[in-house]
């Protein structure tokens, strides 16, 4: 029988949650006995090859592309996991949510203290996804089945969540595994 598949993605995140996934250390050998990786930066598969048991999504939605990737995950994954604080509540990128988008761009590309940009142009290539007015937690955009908070979530929490979901049960995090920082 084929192994169940897992997919992962980092949207508006820092890849710290993926690093924490790798922090499961030698258990990663056990993990690849249990699952195959589908679309994920870990195996560099860019598109889904089939239906996945679990989708782990790091980062919130800051732009149109994030939304489209997330919707694709929702369509392909039985269980969708919001991995980390950004996926759960927007995280650091959501600090811009109280600031008008134009001011954010001007501060980032033109007016910021550490910016050197003599032409004053704000990047606007058609390849650059358009930004959303606010950075959204995943649950604002799709239905999320499991939340793993933490910046990043502890490796043990990720291991517990993944193995539990593969076994078809709800993750049961200990006090030390449920943290918001």
């Amino acid at each position: 029988m084929d192994k169940p598949k897992i997919a992962t993605a980092s949207l508006a995140g820092c890849f710290g949650c993926h690093m924490s996934l790798l922090d499961i250390d030698e258990r990663i050998l056990k993990l690849i006995e249990l699952v195959d990786f589908d679309k994920s930066p870990i195996d560099d598969l860019k598109t889904f090859t089939g239906r996945c048991r679990v989708g782990l999504v790091e980062g919130g939605c800051a732009n149109q592309e994030n939304v489209e990737v997330l919707r694709d995950f929702r369509k392909h994954c039985d269980v969708l996991v919001a991995l980390g604080d950004c996926a759960t509540m927007g995280g650091l990128p959501a600090m811009r949510n109280g600031i008008p988008l134009r001011e954010c761009l001007e501060e980032a590309y033109r007016d910021g203290l550490t910016v050197h940009n003599p032409s004053g142009t704000i990047p606007n290539d058609p390849e650059i996804p358009l930004l959303l007015d606010k950075v959204r937690p995943l649950s604002d955009v799709v239905k999320v089945d499991v939340f793993l908070p933490g910046c990043p979530p502890p490796a043990d929490a990720i291991w517990e969540a993944v193995t539990a979901l593969l076994e078809g049960r709800a993750p049961n995090l200990t006090y030390d595994q449920l943290k918001y920082d």
């Binding site: 509540m89 995280g91 650091l92 649950s139 999320v144 939340f147 910046c151 449920l178 920082d181």
Partner: peptide, 30 residues
């Protein structure tokens, strides 16, 4: 509530209460 950079994290009563009550994420929109 950005716990990840808050000075009070770890000593915060709101956060600690959420831990004790087993809240992984609020069910409401932010």
């Amino acid at each position: 509530h950005f716990c990840m950079f808050c000075e009070k994290s770890g000593n915060c009563e709101l956060q600690a209460l959420a831990y004790r009550l087993g809240i992984a994420s609020p069910r409401y929109p932010y």
